[in-house]
Design a protein around this nucleic acid. Sequence first.
DNA 1: GTACGAACTAGAGCCGTCTCTAGGTCAAGA
DNA 2: TCTTGACCTAGAGACGGCTCTAGTTCGTAC
Lengths: 129, 129
Amino acid sequence: MGLSIGQVAERTGLSVHALRFYEKEGILAHQVHRGPGGRRVYTQQDIDWLRMCIMLRMSGMPVPEIRRYTDLVRQGDGNELQRLDILKEHQERVAQQMVRLQECMDLITRKVGIYQDYVNSIAAKAVGQ
Amino acid sequence: MGLSIGQVAERTGLSVHALRFYEKEGILAHQVHRGPGGRRVYTQQDIDWLRMCIMLRMSGMPVPEIRRYTDLVRQGDGNELQRLDILKEHQERVAQQMVRLQECMDLITRKVGIYQDYVNSIAAKAVGQ
DNA sequence: GTACGAACTAGAGCCGTCTCTAGGTCAAGA
DNA sequence: TCTTGACCTAGAGACGGCTCTAGTTCGTAC
């Protein structure tokens, strides 16, 4: 049940380049096992971890911070408070980002409404003529 | 009531560098007026426009697309449908981004909860001892 | 008149995040 | 045997979005 880098790329949506990049950046929880010929063999755990990393990246956590978190996990038990701090801090940032996004959305929606009304009124006139 | 680039930087949160950069990139709706000595003089309109650009940027609209929108506005009446298209497309992207962010948030919140419980249980034990 | 601070321009540099290249290995199939 | 395709490494390159530098010009205050 080991997967090649290509298969993992396929089912995570990351490129093989990105997968090697992430590994080089040290954001994989455990060293990827190597098969014959030095090829990477990923486990389901690796994929689960990658999916979490993707979530963190998607929500704007920088690679170095993911690495810090990963390092803590690698070090094992005893540093849960530090992990919690990182997660909470990020949670706060994401919350702020969501608020900001919502503000942008409101503005855009207002503008879309205005333009839509205008375009409709023009269309109505054209029909009337 | 014209404002210097420094004043505009102060009240928009952009750097003077960024303001010049935006201008060079052509995302200001109207040419910035120049005062004595060739210095930029911004009007309230400019600031309003900038604030909208900031919103668009914040929500992930790339500079070239803001420029396209700006160009349409500069060209004047008659292209409202195109402007509407750009805005609607962006609106869709922002909506998707919000959904994705919410998913990330859910994951993070779940993890924070788990770690919090764990940390609490450790703390309780420590007190018990 | 000179020093200071804020502005000007053109263009180089930086940062983060990939993405691609070059040159090579390996296994399986025609 | 030759080809193909997926993989390997190290390192260069691309891209977006600023950010900074160098050298200059102003206007005002001492």
